[in-house]
Every structure is written in structure tokens, then in C-alpha cells.
Design a protein around this nucleic acid. Structure first.
Lengths: 149, 149
DNA sequence: AATAACGCTTACGTAAACGTCAACTGCAAA
DNA sequence: TTTGCAGTTGACGTTTACGTAAGCGTTATT
């Protein structure tokens, strides 16, 4: 079965009625719930972000795995790379009492906010530059149209 | 000579006193003036963005080439990919009287502004989400510190 | 028995924009 | 003549986050 077909299957199913009551999840369960693909989950595992147990060949995800996946996806949304996320999760596993770990995370989050702010500024500058160009080009265009009229 | 060494050479030279009086430029001239590398200029040529003439083996850039390079770099700054830039430059070369060409460019610029606005929104959302997380984590941390005191 | 639904693995492909090497050539100054 | 600087041409490497292909196994249903 190709990934494409897999996705169609995922898309057309919804019934996650008991997602919170369950304590074990298949790879398909999680893909559906979080709107990702099987490939992605396997990829994350390959990168050491997830470690579901195996029932024979099959992956079985615990509630903890599921929570980790949630953290991974949030991390992505806010612009962390997978390797950064991995580091933080590893750190989280060490739990040296959590306080130190939380402090570390906190400072990374703050740094990332700075990054995002910088990116935002870059984009704003680009918008400004492009808008200026648009006005200039637009002006010339109008001029030309006036002449040819 | 490695790229690293090349860059050092570039960095330590400045004298572009006559950059505007000249009409011919070596690859090093342009790299210095625009703050890029030789490799980059060769790469752009490879991608069909630049077409300097040759004096034997050596590349010789005209003022027109130099202007094109300026456009390329502006295009990059505002978020166009090299292939998009290439298309627009090619279009520019056709000069069907320029008006049609300018209209095409104009609409692309406007689309790109939309893209940039969207990107900006995404970043703003990320900032919001991360800030919320920071507050939560920060709150818990304070709580813990209070307890241990 | 066949098909569907779910899962598995290996492994190559993709896009973007160059960086990094290697191995030369040409020219001028010391 | 030996450096040193400037330039040349391949061609492979890098990064990120998966997509896609291909082929195979397991259950449950039809």
C-alpha cells in the first residue's frame, strides 16, 4: 500500500470517540488524531523522538508516547527543528527534579521568541521593499498607459 | 584555493572607489561589491541567471550583468526563489514592449506580498503560542520555587 | 479464496542554495 | 624561480522533513 492510499484511509475515518479513554494506540490511531502520516511517525521514531513498544512487529504507542507526539508537533509549530525538539525531550527524560530542566526549556523558548521576532522583522522589511517596488512599477505602468492613450 | 580562503580575500579588500565608473567587472569585483562569493556567481550562471562574456577562460561582467545581479539579490531578499527570479528575468529579456511584462511582474509581486503577509501571520501565531507556554512554564517554576523555599 | 484494512521494511528521491574539495592554469612580484 | 593571488572546471556533500515506491505479512470479512 502506498502512502497516498494510506492517507486517504486516514482522511476518511474520524471516530476518535474514545481517544482519551484508551491507553494504547496504533500508529494509525495517532496519525489520525494528530493529522499526520504513518511515515511521519516512523520517521520520528527513526530520529529517536518516539519509542513505541513492539507487539511482535507492530508499534504500540502508550499515552506517554502520545503526549510526546503532542509536544513534538507543538515544537514544530513554533519553529523548533526536530533535533532541537529531540534534545529537549531527552532532557525532559532525565528529569533531574525537573526544575533545572524547566529553566533550560524556558530560556530556549525565550530565545526562540526572539528568533521569531527577528524573522517577523525580516518579513516586514521584505514587505516594505516589495511594496515600494510595486508602487514604482505601478506608477510607470500608469504613465505608459496614459501615453499610449 | 578553497572557498574559505577566497572569502578572506574578499573580506579584506574594500576599494570599490570606482565601481560606478567602471564598465567591466571581474567575478571578484562583483562578489566584493555585493557581498557574495565567487561560487555564488558561478552558481547563478550555471542556473542561467547570469551570462557574462568570456575573455579566454575568465568571466567578464558588463554593467548590465551587474544590474541583473542586483535584481537577483533583491529578488532573494523579498523571498523569491532563484527559479522564479530566473523566469522574471527571462521575461524581462523578451521585452514585448515591456508593458505586458511589467503587468506580469506586478501581479507576481502582489502575490508575493500576500505570501509574506501569510508567513507573518504564521509567525505571529507561533509567537503567541510560545509566549503562552512561557507563561505557563514560568508560572509553574515560580510555584516550585515558592514551595522549596 | 479473495479482498480490504492495517501494518512492516528498505531505500531512493526531493527542493534550495550554495559549500567544499581537488586539481589546474595564468600572471605578476619578490 | 618560487610564491601568491586570481581565476577555472567538475563533482560530491550538506541540511530538513518527510514522500514515494515496492514488496510482503497479518487479520477479519465477504
Amino acid at each position: 500500500m502506498t502512502e497516498h492510499e494510506e492517507r486517504r484511509l486516514i482522511d476518511r475515518q474520524a471516530g476518535m470517540a474514545d481517544a482519551n479513554s484508551k491507553s494504547q494506540f496504533t500508529i494509525g490511531d495517532l496519525a489520525r488524531e494528530f493529522g499526520t502520516t504513518l511515515r511521519t511517525l516512523r520517521f520520528y521514531e527513526d530520529k529517536g523522538l518516539l519509542n513505541p513498544r513492539r507487539e511482535g512487529q507492530q508499534r504500540l504507542y502508550s499515552r506517554r508516547d502520545r503526549a510526546r507526539l503532542g509536544l513534538i508537533l507543538r515544537g514544530k509549530r513554533v519553529g523548533f527543528s526536530l533535533s532541537e525538539i529531540r534534545e529537549m525531550l531527552d532532557l525532559y527524560d532525565l528529569r533531574d527534579g525537573q526544575v533545572t530542566q524547566m529553566r533550560v526549556a524556558l530560556s530556549r523558548f525565550e530565545k526562540q521568541v526572539d528568533n521569531l521576532r527577528r524573522q517577523k522583522e525580516d518579513i516586514e522589511e521584505a514587505i516594505t521593499e516589495l511594496s515600494r517596488t510595486i508602487e514604482i512599477v505601478g506608477g510607470i505602468l500608469k504613465e505608459k498607459e496614459r501615453q499610449s492613450a
